[in-house]
Amino acid sequence: MAIKVHGNPISNATMRVVACLIEKDLDFEFVFVDLVTGEHKKHPFLSLNPFGQVPAFEDGDLKLFESRAITQYITHVYASNGNQLILQDPKKMAIMSLWMEVEGQRFEPPTLKLVWELCIKPMTGMNTDDAIVKESEEQLSKVLDIYETRLAESKYLGGDSFTLVELHHLPNIYFLMSTKVKALFDSRPHVSAWCADILARPAWVKGLEKLQK
């Protein structure tokens, strides 16, 4: 099998790549990387990602890391496969790219901290830092206010159809739906409906099932 994803089921970035491959109806091999033993910080994994983070990706002799770069590669190279996750019209693509940047620069920082404090730390027996949670909730609220306005005028952040914009959001939203932060999403009707829509994507559900086996 040409495509390999080296990652861990608990990694939001790994989830992002797996969901993209399933959306594109592509076969791939999942290679488990043991984060507990620090496998990602040692060779031979470091030859795939010198920063020692999952996932790493192989497609034949091509090796990539950084989940958003991987998903963009997949959607461009395998454009004719599965569901279309990018937009062809240059102006629409520009809007989509804008919201992809918003996800990475505005949404990811506070939600990643919240996932760490409210999901990962309790799972590993560490204490949650309430000050970080409070600060991150305040930052996220400001982002979601802007999302609510955008989603009142557009079905999806990136346009009229599900694209990489939504796919990139999915892992952190999924984790936070099991925490008190869910209330921040639920209190905004358009954001709440958007979350329910994208979390129900068959490819996302199938990806979770594959990673949990």
Results as ranks from 00 to 15, higher is better:
S97A: 15
F32D: 05
Q72E: 13
W99I: 03
D27H: 10
K24R: 12
P50E: 10
L62W: 08
P50R: 01
D89Q: 06
L62A: 08
I74K: 01
A56R: 11
F65N: 01
K42H: 12
I70L: 02
R16I: 10
P109S: 05
T14I: 07
M96P: 04
K63Q: 10
D25H: 14
S47C: 07
V36G: 11
P50S: 11
F28R: 01
S67W: 06
A19K: 03
V36K: 15
L98F: 11
L112G: 12
A79L: 08
F32S: 14
F57C: 13
L87P: 09
M100G: 12
L26A: 08
I3T: 04
T14E: 09
P90M: 00
L62T: 13
C20N: 13
L26E: 14
F65S: 04
E29P: 05
G82F: 11
I3F: 02
P110V: 11
S97H: 13
R68S: 07
V33I: 15
K91D: 10
K41N: 12
R106F: 03
D61H: 12
P90E: 05
N81V: 06
H40I: 05
L48G: 04
K41C: 03
M93K: 11
K42V: 04
F30C: 12
G104K: 04
L48K: 09
N83K: 14
V77M: 05
D27N: 13
G60L: 08
D59R: 02
E103N: 15
